[in-house]
Nucleic acid binder design. Sequence first.
DNA 1: CGTTACAATGACGCTAAGGTCAAGCTGGCT
DNA 2: AGCCAGCTTGACCTTAGCGTCATTGTAACG
Lengths: 132, 132
Amino acid sequence: MAEDVMTIREMCDTFEVTPRTLRFYESKELLSPIRQGNKRLFTRRDRARLKLILRGKRFGFSLEEIRQILDLYDTEQGEKAQLQRAYAAAKERLADMERQRDELEETIGELKDQLEWGEKVLASFDDKTAAA
Amino acid sequence: MAEDVMTIREMCDTFEVTPRTLRFYESKELLSPIRQGNKRLFTRRDRARLKLILRGKRFGFSLEEIRQILDLYDTEQGEKAQLQRAYAAAKERLADMERQRDELEETIGELKDQLEWGEKVLASFDDKTAAA
DNA sequence: CGTTACAATGACGCTAAGGTCAAGCTGGCT
DNA sequence: AGCCAGCTTGACCTTAGCGTCATTGTAACG
């Protein structure tokens, strides 16, 4: 992985995705590897973005929503209007995440209760088995 | 909404989904409304399940994964083996959620930092505008 | 220089989760 | 009886997000 860039194979092994996925993300402009001949070379920027993409996916965001977040991380010195849009969009995603975190916390609690109940019922099955 | 059941319209208005969605969930056995003639009537059980379904979706779970959780909430006195499977599946979903919560917490932090940076840059634009 | 080995492109396929008609009941109103 | 609103089923359509070839390129190795 000389020169701080990675081949598509190295990327795939590192992030456990397929080449198809990386090419697909590139086609959607989520990644923009440089080319050496016709081969793709992924930079640290691509790696950082991919990490965020995969995270976002786990949170249930669509690739389009994820792009909105990436745009904020990205907008190096640009138009003010563009940064404003990115800022607003990312702020909404943040609100989504905070809501999601709260709901998640609640749901985890409820599910834990339910699992406890399940444990008890399973234990009672053991009793019956032992008694028989 | 007499007798504690709701028509498909009432459900749609309450949960902001379309009839198609409710029928689709029924076809996937996530819901099981009773029938009066050929009309569907949704009980409190259906409502509770739908609430969990919509939550699960927001967390990025597939309908299939959600069914695994519902199965635990559901398995009223059944086969031991069935409950065990539901228990194991639900426990995995719980682990997913806890991982997700941790990642979410981290990501929220990072995004907040990034937003702060965005605010500063936007403020600097204002300075330039004021200076001009 | 031929073969092996990975890369790229293009095209088509597929699944999940619904959307969108079309056609036909049904239960009131009037 | 006639009509309309709302429900139902069935069939096909759509979008996102990749999977899976088939073909072609190219770089390195023996």
